[in-house]
Design a protein around this nucleic acid. Sequence first.
DNA 1: ACTATTTCCTGGATGC
DNA 2: TGCATCCAGGAAATAG
Length: 284
Amino acid sequence: MPELPEVETIARGLQQKVSGDVIESVWLGSKPQTMKSRPAEIAAALEHARITQVRRMGKHIVFDLERNGVPAAAKTRRRIKAPGPRAQWIVHLGMTGRMLVCEPSAELAKHTHAIVTLASGRELRFVDPRRFGRLSVASQGDFEAGGSEPLEVEKDRFVALFRGRKTPIKSALLNQKLLRGVGNIYADESLFRAGLRPRRRVSTITRARLEKLYESVQEVLKEAIALGGSSISNYVDADGEEGVFQLQHRVYGRAGEACLVCKTPIKRVVIVGRSSHYCPKCQK
DNA sequence: ACTATTTCCTGGATGC
DNA sequence: TGCATCCAGGAAATAG
């Protein structure tokens, strides 16, 4: 399940492989729920555009596109909203989404929902069995609004985002409108390091402890990025390499196993429909 | 304005 | 062995 560190790893790999390349044609599959924008709009924005940069925002991969003097007039006449000269292709991988860069001759994976052919002769393919992933297009800047980037937000702002909320801290960490990029694994790991139980109401947490959480979130995310993310549920990066941060997990997926600090068995509870793991002794 | 719950989706694991 | 059932979870939609 790609969260911030996995998406960062994938985006860096794609930046290496396809930035500067030009999109020649686009094929989109017939599963409408995988498209957040209208398919015709996605195709119009991508075709003949140059990929100037690939980067991550929250859990999204952003392809910055530039159109080099190719008039979109014909498309405009058909009332397909003309993509601006500086559009963005936004990819959300959901649970099982993959972005593959491959030769056109490469075997077509089951559940391939989009194929983008590149001027370099390669293809960029979006594959997603569970179909929680989404493709969309936006104008430059539109996507910047939203939650704060956990690795860029300042401490005071982080504290202000959470203060006073009645919801469990785990729920707040997963709320992408507050902080974007933290998912189930890194929420659990951050809470363990901050000594906070996932069910703890945000409003009962002291400012000092929220500051500790801020440090924990950054620490966990930075360590995970350095290790290429966590490879569970078949996650691999743009080169098919597995990350190794799962070996550093202290609570996630360790229900019933001994806490690495105090040996107390790790508990598992369900919050917001997600499994949450914590040490009942180390976390309050 | 918030918060909680439901829904979408398939493959791998588990159960009988 | 084979089939049915459960479970994983991000975020949009819905309900309170």
